[in-house]
Amino acid sequence: MHGPVIAGVNGSAESLDAAEWAAREAERRGRPLRLVHAGNRHPRRGGGSFPERPAAREEAGAPAAERHLGRRALREAEQRVLRAVPGVRVTGEPVEGPATAALLKAGEQAAVLVLGSRGLGGVTGFLVGSVALGVVARATTPVVLVRVGEDAEDGHVPAADGGPSARTGTRDVVLGLDVADPCDEVIEFAFEAARLRQARLRVVHAWQPPSALGLGPGDIALVNDPYRAQEWRGFLSAVLQVWRDKYPEVEVLETVVREKASTALVRAASGASLLVVGRYLADRPVRVRTGPVTHAVVHHVRCPVAVVPHR
C-alpha cells in the first residue's frame, strides 16, 4: 500500500519511541508520517456519539481535558520525530472514538501502522496492552509493535569496539514462514523491508514431526528427521525462488529447524532489526485472535515486530 506511515501517540515513552521508529520507516519508504491521538479512550455508555444530556454535566470537562492532552502529545511527538528525522513530512491530528476502534479506522489508509509497547526489560520482551493487542488482532494493514527504549542504533550491528552505532550495517530482517501455507503479502513485506534497509533477510521455517499415533501402516518409514529436514528445505527454496528473482539485491538466508515455531522465531529475532510474521484474516469477525505463534512473539521478542494480515 502507498499510504502514509501512521503512528499512534498518547504521550507515553513507548509511543514516542514508536513515533521515532515510524519516522525512520517513513523516510525509508519516501512516505509522509501521520501522527494520530485517540482522545476518547473511555466513551460514555451508548458510544459517546449523542449530544450531551444535562444529567451528564459532571463529565463536561473530560473532553476538553482530553483534547488538551491530545494536542500536547501530538506536539511532543512531532518535535521528537523532527529532531530525529529532520526531513520527514509529518502531520498530527486527533481522532475520535475509543482508542482501538479509532486506530483501526485511521490505519485503514496506512502503509504501516506503528504502535508502542512497554518493555519489561532484560529478555522478557513486551508488555502488550489491550489497545495494541486489539489493533493487531483486527487490523487489515500491517501493524508494527515497537518496544519502549528502541532507538536508531538498535537496528544496526555493533561497532568494531562493540558499542552501539547507527553507521554500521543493518541487522537481519527475520521472516517467520509456514512453507505449508505461504502468503504473498507477508513474504513481500519482509523482502521489501530488507531491501529498504539494505539488510539480509533470514527466513525461518520451523517444523515438528507428526505424532506416531497419526501415522498409517505405510508411513512409518517417513519418520526420519534428516529426510524431513531436507524435504522442508527444498519446499522453502522453491517458495522463495520467485521472490529471490524479484528482489535480486536482497541476500537471503534460509533456516529450517525442528522446533516449535514460536521458540525458533524468538531465538532468531534476538539479533534482528525487525521480525515479520503473518496473521490470518478470518472471513467472519468472530473470536478475533492473533494466533498462538504471533501472540507468543509479540510478547517475547525484543526487536520491532511486524504483523501482516493475509487471507
Rank of each mutant, 00 (worst) to 15 (best):
18 A>H: 14
35 L>R: 04
50 F>E: 07
57 R>D: 00
58 E>I: 02
59 E>I: 07
59 E>F: 07
72 R>C: 10
72 R>W: 14
80 R>Q: 06
81 V>A: 10
84 A>Y: 01
88 V>N: 10
93 E>M: 06
94 P>A: 08
94 P>H: 05
96 E>K: 01
100 T>V: 01
106 A>R: 01
115 L>F: 05
122 G>Y: 13
130 S>K: 04
130 S>A: 01
132 A>S: 09
133 L>I: 09
134 G>R: 05
136 V>S: 03
142 P>Y: 00
146 V>R: 10
152 A>F: 02
154 D>E: 05
163 G>Y: 04
167 R>V: 04
168 T>I: 05
172 D>T: 03
177 L>W: 04
179 V>Q: 13
180 A>L: 02
180 A>K: 11
190 A>K: 07
194 A>V: 07
197 R>G: 08
198 Q>Y: 00
209 P>H: 07
212 A>D: 13
214 G>S: 09
215 L>P: 13
216 G>T: 03
217 P>I: 10
220 I>D: 11
224 N>Q: 13
225 D>L: 15
225 D>Y: 10
228 R>W: 15
234 G>Y: 11
239 V>D: 06
245 D>Y: 04
248 P>W: 12
250 V>C: 06
261 A>R: 11
263 T>I: 15
270 S>F: 13
278 G>Y: 02
278 G>F: 06
280 Y>T: 15
281 L>A: 15
283 D>C: 07
286 V>E: 11
293 V>M: 02
300 H>D: 05
310 H>G: 12
